[in-house]
Structures are given as structure tokens and as C-alpha cells.
Design a protein around this nucleic acid. Structure first.
Length: 863
RNA sequence: GCCCGGGUGGCGGAAUAGGUAGACGCAAGGGACUUAAAAUCCCUCGGUGCUGCGCACUGUACGAGUUCGAUUCUCGUCCCGGGCACCA
């Protein structure tokens, strides 16, 4: 065997071997327990980055480990292939999004293969292919028929200069990213999915996801944002009109002294018409319309509003309340109308103070007397009601219920709940996405494309270069069609495409039967594989993607296509890959090679100025702190990169990239290689020792026990805990111990024990460094791959040491240690402790108050 | 502002049930091998003090508390990261 480990000589060889043997191909097998493992599929941007490498390295360990444990492991990979970058790149490089995308898929696929990940590539999917999005269109039609997909007006970001719709990420500080012109809100009719119908179900099941990180569950709960409260009707003075508000604090109703309507609220225009305020209101409303929502509702935005020239009546007190329209009131939340209680809501307090509006205290805290004149902020804590007529003296927590009930009985309102979550707007006025399969007929309105005409194929000849509307709407050959219902030849196809989150909402199911061509998926295959046992990906998808997937699963469940509601049983969100940044006061961010010297003395090669020792930040091209997996692959090979990603930090934490650390991982593999080479002749034709540890002595006994302890430790660290860093550390310890074996040690069992240790090392790190371990394994003359070898088991009788170190404490402080046989009786050990010289010294002759003995651990003498 | 995480050597991190703080690795220092270097192997490595080859004190952001004993549990304070945020 070669003296040194050379990844270049072995990685390609084993990848070819696995491929030829079809080792990663799986099919449903009822005789085996299934394990469905998925990592989030990538957007085919061109090259894989370290974030992908980390994500997929973690996944591959689990896949290979579970497989060796005997599970039937489904481990697929695919491409989230629709999306805007393809369009942008196509415009920039004068190419076609499809060409750009497929080239990227080919390039990144090759990179993933070079990393040695154990995917069943026969199941590869690309969401931009008609055989994939066809079924998405089919489901859309079903949803439309059931009213789960519908059309309504909604705002989009509109750039006047470019005459086009902009996605949120194309709007930078309310300016168009391309021309720098101001972005306006424009109302367009768009398609929505009724996710709000499932808000409660999605929320409730948040607590039934024990395999999810609490953080993600909390984020989903916040996003759904359920709040309990009441709807209250306010009559407009001298009119039949009633205004409905939503409040979480019906207990403060008697303190409501004015009302605020969202600028978009229809009553703003209606009620101000013909009043002295009409012109002022119009000016205010149109000014608000021009501001984008993010800005209008920004943190530090000053509250402002104008009276609309009408008043309403407080239903409990009968007091007249001025009606305002205000910038902070949002049409999308609640009813778009707020009853304002300045004394008990901070925002209302500030608004009332600014405009000199009346404040009435209705909740008094115990032992304190609030008065409107002396208050400097709103009082929002519990208390007792005052100035509230029949409700005076009631605890405010009770009054919430009582007032809501009173309103209900008198037809003035009722208890209700509100959600922050809105229906999912899926329309994109973009080209590179799945066409929404609908037809607009001048006679019969909207009709779905008949199922036998699906898929509506995205045409390849759209012109992306000229600004103006969505590319599809300009393409007559696509738009012009016949109405499927009445045959009208002036019908037009829908030209909006679907949000790419739609594709990723059902891809786990598609992986189960990726080639199924008569349905979304094969129901039986899905029944066997789903739900996904373990899903791994970035925390940036904690809300949108994961929530949409959960929602879609419920839709599929409603259609009877799946028999479960939650797609992902366990979820792991891995941390970001970070690296030190370097900044020159003159030249800004620097590449590592633009810096010389080290420590505090580092200087810029361009100007010689001291370089700011930058913070460790997420790798990004703009900060020049990226490392390219391709370069690392050439230098160290896949196994070293994989090993480093797993060793440097536990998966859920951020990983600090360190070139020295990579070097260290490489050195470790070399060290294992040498250990193997050094003992090869001795252990090559020997069976691993499998007897009792009691038949061994001295170092061999310790080594044998260490071997089994390591098997247990690594198994438990990988399974469930996913702490690969400590698993690797444990194997390192075992390797160090093999190095400690004295060459001169003569023992007939030596070779067998050594062989057992070496085999354990190989098997235990094989999920992390598969090529490396296959190579070593084959040198043993093994014909079966490591991957096909069962995961090693540990012997219970080889886990415990014969002797344990017992710590001796006096008053809780460590004073001495004792080597005693395992399971020495408490009484005996207590005697030994009290006889210990150092213990006696620190007891200083004082009387013993208490002695605590923890078996095999410690003795604490309290004096 | 509210809700979650987190704070341990020069660095990444370990301590999985309240019981030896710092496993493993990186960096650093020393030694061996070598004509030399690289590679490799071995040793040292939280801080302070002393009557220095051993011993004492101290140490897991800070301050209290519970306990025989706290990195671990409770309360308060500070800092860092993330999510939500004029949501009525």
C-alpha cells in the first residue's frame, strides 16, 4: 500500500464503483424498515458553495449510518430550478433561462458527485421540467375547483421607468434595483391560496412536532400570529354607517376616545366626502399610497394622521369620538380600523399627545392612582376597571370576557380571533416559473385548462430583454387561446407564473415516485416512504418554505392523496458557514491574499495600511470571505472537506471556517492511514478479537475496552444527537490509543485486538469519509463495501473499566483522588477516604458533619 | 419593545441525569529524527502566587440564591446573535 494517503487516487475510483454497483438505488421494500432522509434541494445558481457542502455532508453521514444500521434509506436530490436569478442572468449574458439553468444543473451535479454523496440519482428532479410542474398545475386546477385558489386585487411593486413588476428583493430602499427610480404600489388582480383556512390547524400542530427545533416552531407560531379579542361595532354619528374594529383589549373600551382608519379603508373616502376635511384627507391618502409598506410602518416612523371630518359613538359610554385616518393603521390586519385608547396603549398615547386628544383612565393598578395629566406613557398592565359604568371594580382580565359578552347580547360586537398570517399570494409577473393553468374568457370569465391539455408548457421563445409587463403577456402565441367552456376564440391565457415556493411544497412526495406520469405521485410509494423521517436545511427557511410545505400536505390530505398531515417528522436546521473578514480603511473588503503579515500587524498589499481584523461573518461574495469548494476539493479531496465540516462545530451552530482546521482534518486522515500501514502485515490475515475483555490483560484489555466504548459513543452521538464533532473526537482518541501500543508488547491476542480496533476506526468514520474508508477496507481483502457492512455493535461487558477514579472532596473542594475497583461498597470507600492523608489534612481535625458517597464517582466529607 | 437562542483557555469546541471544568482539534512553545527543511513522533500548554519539578489560591459574562457540591437549577444585571415588530 502507498505510504501516504492520496485522495486523488481513490475518490474517483470509489465513486465509479458505487455507481456501477448501483448501491444508492432504492425501492420500496416492505420487509425493511424505511428511512426517508432529505436535505433541502439547491437552487442551481452555478456552483455549489460551502453552505451546500456542509448541509449535504451532514445529511450523507445520517444516510450512510442509517443504511449500515439496516434501514431502507431513501436519500434523493434535485433542483429548485425556477426563479428569478435565471432570468436576470439570461438578460445579462444574453442567453436563455432554460439553457443557463440546465448548464448549472449539470455543473453542480458533477460537483455533488465529486463529493461522494450517496444520492439515488435515478430520482433526480428539476422543478422547471414540464413533467414536474405539470402536476403542480393539475393540483392548482383541483384547488381552484374547490375554491382553495382564488383571485383578488393586491399590491405589487411597480417601476414606472421599467414598466415592470418587481419582486420584493428587487426593491432596495423603495428604489428599483435596475434604474434607481422610485417604486410604487400598484394594484393587480392576482392568485392566492387560502392558507388562512388552515391557520388554526397549522398552529395547533406546532406543538405536535417534537422533532423540530423549538426556535423554528416558535417562529411559525409568531408568523401565524393568533390573537384573541373582540370585534366591536361603532355607529357613525348622524349616519346609518357602522364601523367594525378589532381589539385585543375590549376591557378598555370605555377609554376609547377616538378612532383610526387605515388610509385604504373605504370609509375614509366615503365619510370625508363633502366635508371640510375632504381635500386634506385626499392629500394624506395619496401620500400614503406612494410610500411602500415597509417604510410606512418602519420602526421609527412618526405617527401621523388627519381627522376625516366625521365622528362615531362609543357603544358603552355614548361619547362622541373623532375619526382619524392614520399611517400606522393597516388595512390587512383585523378590520383596518382601530379603537384608540390612549391611556392603555402606547401607540395611541403618542398619537393622542401629539394631537391633543382626550385621555380617560379606565384601568387602575393596585395601590397607585393614574391620572391622564401625570401619565408619561400608557399603562398596559393588569388592574381594576374605573370610569366604566357597570363594569367598575371588575378585574380587567375578567372584564375582557364580561364586556365581550355584553356587546354580543346587545348586537354591538362579539368575541373573535385574528391571525397575522395572510393568504399566500402565488402570482408572479415573471417568466421563469410554472404557468398558472387558467384561461380568461370574455364571455364566461375564468376557466381552468382542461386536465387533458396539461401541462401548459412554458414557451421557450419569450422575449426577456424588453421591459414592460411580464414576458408571457407579450407573447401572442402563448396568450391567444380558445375558451374550453364556450369555444370563444378571443380567450386569453393567464400569464402569471407561480411562486417557486409552490414547487418546493410537494417535492418530498415527488421523490417517492419521480417518474410517475399519470399522477402527481404514486400513492403507494408515498404511503411507504412518507413522511420524511429527517429533513435537514438552513434556518432561513424556518417560516416560508416549511410552513407552505405543511400547508400543502394538508391540501393533499384533504384530497385524499396522502394519509398524513405533517411532511417532516424531524427537522435539523444547520448553522451558517462563516469566515473572518478583512477590511482595509482605504480599499474596503480584502481577499486573504491581499493581506500580508499576521496578528495585529496585518497590512493591505495595495496601500500598506493596517488591516482591520474583521469580524467572523457569513461567507458572502460581497465581503470577499468565501472559499470555493472546488479549490478545496482539488487540494484535499472530498473526505477532508466533509470531515472538517463535521468536526469544526455541531451542526446547529455556525461553523467558523479555518484553513488550519482543514489542514488538521487532512492530517488526521494521514495519521489513520499510517496507523493502518504500520499494522497491515500484522493484522491482515487475523480475525478481530471478539472474546471477553476478562481474557485480556494490561494495555490490550484497555484498548479493547476503548474500542467498544468508542463504538457506543459514536453510535449514540450520530443517532439522534447528530453531534458528529464529538463522535470524531472519540475516534481520534481511539486512534491515539492505538498509537500508544508498545511495539515490543508480546501477546498472542495482540493482533486480534489490534484488528478489532482498526476495523472499528474504519467503520465508525466511514459515513463521514466514505472513499477513504472504502480504500482501507478493501485492503483487508474485503469484497463487500463498507456501506454494505453492518454497523458495529458494542459489548456491554467491555464498557466499564475495572478500576475507577473516585474523587475525594472536603467541603465540596477537590482534595485527592483514589483508584478503587469498580462498585466498591460505599462503607468501604468512605473508610478509605477518611484514611486519606490529604483528606485528613484538609479536615484539620474538625468533627465530621456528613459524608456523601456517590458510587464510582466521589466522596465528599463535610466538616 | 416583545419572543427565542447563546456567553467556557490565544482559537473552534467538550463536559449527554447537579458530581474530576477545559475531551478532541487548531495555534503556540520545547524535544527527537534529519546535513538541512518538509513530513512524522513525543512532551508542555486557563490564570495568579509561592518557600517552583510540587503545593496553594483562583477560574465557565457579572451579582445574588438553592445545595454537601452549580458551566449545569432559580432570580436579577450586562453583552452578543436570531426572529417578530405602529398587528390594534
Amino acid at each position: 500500500m502507498d505510504e501516504r494517503y492520496d485522495p486523488k487516487k481513490i475518490e474517483g475510483k470509489w465513486q465509479a464503483h458505487w455507481d456501477a454497483a448501483g448501491l444508492f438505488k432504492v425501492k420500496e421494500d416492505p420487509s425493511k424498515e424505511k428511512y426517508f432522509l432529505m436535505e433541502m434541494f439547491p437552487y442551481p445558481s452555478g456552483k455549489i458553495h460551502m453552505g451546500h457542502v456542509r448541509n449535504y455532508s451532514i445529511g450523507d453521514v445520517v444516510a450512510r449510518f442509517k443504511r449500515m444500521q439496516g434501514f431502507n434509506v431513501l436519500h434523493p436530490m434535485g433542483w429548485d430550478a425556477f426563479g428569478m436569478p435565471a432570468e436576470n442572468a439570461a438578460i445579462k449574458n444574453n442567453t436563455h433561462p432554460a439553457k443557463w439553468t440546465y448548464e448549472n444543473i449539470a455543473a453542480m451535479g458533477a460537483q455533488l458527485k465529486a463529493m461522494g454523496f450517496s444520492y439515488d440519482w435515478d430520482r433526480e428532479i428539476a422543478t422547471c421540467k414540464p413533467d414536474y410542474y405539470r402536476w403542480e398545475q393539475w393540483l392548482f386546477v383541483q384547488m381552484f375547483k374547490k375554491g382553495m385558489a382564488y383571485r383578488k386585487e393586491a399590491n405589487v411593486n411597480w417601476c414606472h421607468t421599467c414598466q415592470t413588476v418587481l419582486a420584493n428583493e428587487q426593491v432596495e430602499q423603495n428604489m428599483c434595483w435596475r434604474c434607481g427610480d422610485e417604486v410604487e404600489q400598484k394594484k393587480l388582480k392576482q392568485w392566492f391560496f387560502r392558507i388562512t383556512d388552515y391557520a388554526d390547524d397549522l398552529l395547533e400542530h406546532c406543538d405536535k412536532l417534537p422533532g423540530w427545533p423549538e426556535k423554528v416552531v416558535t417562529m411559525q407560531k409568531n408568523w401565524i400570529g393568533k390573537s384573541h379579542g373582540a370585534e366591536i361595532l361603532f355607529s357613525v354619528k348622524d349616519s346609518d354607517v357602522k364601523i367594525k374594529v378589532f381589539t385585543t383589549r375590549p376591557d378598555t373600551l370605555c377609554g376609547a376616545t377616538f378612532m383610526c382608519l387605515a388610509p385604504e379603508h373605504p370609509l375614509v373616502e366615503e365619510l370625508s366626502k363633502g366635508t371640510a376635511q375632504e381635500a386634506v384627507v385626499q392629500e394624506f391618502v395619496s401620500r400614503m399610497a406612494k410610500q411602500d409598506k415597509a417604510k410606512r410602518t418602519a420602526d421609527d416612523k412618526e405617527k401621523e394622521g388627519v381627522p376625516i371630518g366625521a365622528q362615531c359613538i362609543n357603544p358603552l359610554t355614548g361619547k362622541t369620538m373623532e375619526i382619524y385616518t392614520a399611517n400606522f393603521a393597516l388595512m390587512e390586519y383585523g378590520t383596518g380600523a382601530v379603537m384608540s385608547v390612549p391611556t392603555h396603549d402606547q401607540r395611541d398615547f403618542e398619537f393622542a399627545t401629539k394631537y391633543g386628544l382626550e385621555k380617560i383612565v379606565v384601568i387602575q393598578p393596585e395601590g397607585e392612582a393614574l391620572s391622564p395629566e401625570t401619565m408619561t406613557e400608557a399603562y398596559t398592565d393588569p388592574g381594576v376597571l374605573v370610569n366604566s359604568g357597570q363594569f367598575d371594580g371588575m378585574k380587567n382580565t375578567d372584564a375582557m370576557e364580561a364586556i365581550a359578552q355584553y356587546l354580543d347580547e346587545n348586537d354591538m360586537g362579539k368575541k373573535t380571533v385574528q391571525y397575522r398570517i395572510r393568504d399566500w399570494g402565488i402570482s408572479r409577473q415573471r417568466y421563469w416559473g410554472a404557468p398558472i393553468p387558467m384561461i380568461h374568457c370574455p364571455d364566461c370569465g375564468i376557466a381552468p385548462v382542461p386536465e387533458d391539455q396539461l401541462p401548459v408548457i412554458l414557451p421557450e421563445d419569450a422575449n426577456l430583454l424588453e421591459g414592460g409587463k411580464s414576458p408571457l403577456s407579450e407573447l401572442d402565441s402563448f396568450v391567444k387561446t380558445t375558451c374550453p367552456q364556450c369555444g370563444n376564440e378571443n380567450a386569453r391565457r393567464e400569464t402569471d407564473t407561480m411562486d417557486t415556493f409552490v414547487e418546493s411544497s410537494w417535492y418530498p412526495e415527488r421523490y417517492c415516485s419521480p417518474k410517475c406520469d399519470d399522477a402527481m405521485f404514486d400513492v403507494d410509494a408515498v404511503k411507504y416512504w412518507m413522511p420524511v423521517d429527517q429533513y435537514i436545511g438552513g434556518v432561513e427557511h424556518a417560516v416560508m418554505h416549511l410552513l407552505y410545505s405543511r400547508y400543502f400536505t394538508r391540501v393533499l390530505n384533504d384530497f385524499g392523496l396522502v394519509d398524513f398531515k405533517e411532511p417532516f417528522t424531524r427537522l435539523l436546521t444547520q448553522g451558517m458557514v462563516c469566515k473572518e473578514t478583512l477590511k482595509c480603511p482605504e480599499h474596503g473588503w480584502l481577499f486573504p491574499h491581499e493581506v500580508e503579515g499576521n496578528g495585529e500587524e496585518r497590512t493591505c498589499t495595495k496601500c500598506g495600511k493596517i488591516v482591520e481584523a474583521g469580524r467572523v461573518e457569513k461567507m458572502s461574495k460581497s465581503k470577499l470571505n468565501v472559499v470555493d469548494p472546488e479549490e478545496l476539493l482539488a487540494k484535499y479531496g472530498a473526505d477532508t472537506i466533509r470531515l472538517f465540516c463535521l468536526f469544526a462545530a455541531p451542526p446547529e451552530r455556525d461553523l467558523d471556517w479555518s484553513e488550519e482546521g482543514v489542514e488538521g482534518s487532512y492530517r488526521f486522515l494521514q495519521r489513520v492511514w499510517r496507523m493502518f500501514a504500520a499494522h497491515m502485515d500484522e493484522v491482515k490475515d487475523v480475525q478481530p478479537y471478539e472474546g471477553s475483555p476478562d481474557d485480556l490483560d494490561g494495555y490490550l484489555k484497555d484498548l479493547y475496552k476503548k474500542t467498544h466504548q468508542t463504538i457506543k459513543k459514536v453510535t449514540e452521538d450520530i443517532d439522534g444527537r447528530f453531534h458528529f464533532n464529538t463522535a470524531i473526537a472519540a475516534v481520534m482518541e481511539l486512534v491515539n490509543m492505538v498509537y500508544g501500543l508498545d511495539d515490543d508488547l508480546q501477546d498472542e491476542k495482540r493482533a486480534g485486538v489490534l484488528r478489532a480496533a482498526v476495523e472499528a476506526v474504519i467503520l465508525l468514520i466511514s459515513p463521514m469519509t466514505p472513499h477513504f474508508t472504502e480504500e482501507l477496507w478493501s485492503m483487508f481483502g474485503k469484497t463487500q463495501c463498507v456501506l454494505e457492512t453492518p454497523w458495529p455493535a458494542w459489548r456491554e461487558d467491555a464498557l466499564t473499566a475495572d478500576e475507577v477514579v473516585v474523587v475525594l472532596q472536603v467541603n465540596g473542594k477537590l482534595r485527592s483522588k483514589l483508584n478503587v475497583p469498580l462498585d466498591t461498597e460505599d462503607e468501604k470507600i468512605k473508610e478509605m477516604a477518611l484514611a486519606d492523608e490529604k483528606v485528613r489534612k484538609f479536615m484539620g481535625g474538625k468533627p465530621i458533619r456528613k459524608v456523601i458517597v456517590v458510587k464510582n464517582k466521589l466522596v465528599n466529607v463535610v466538616v
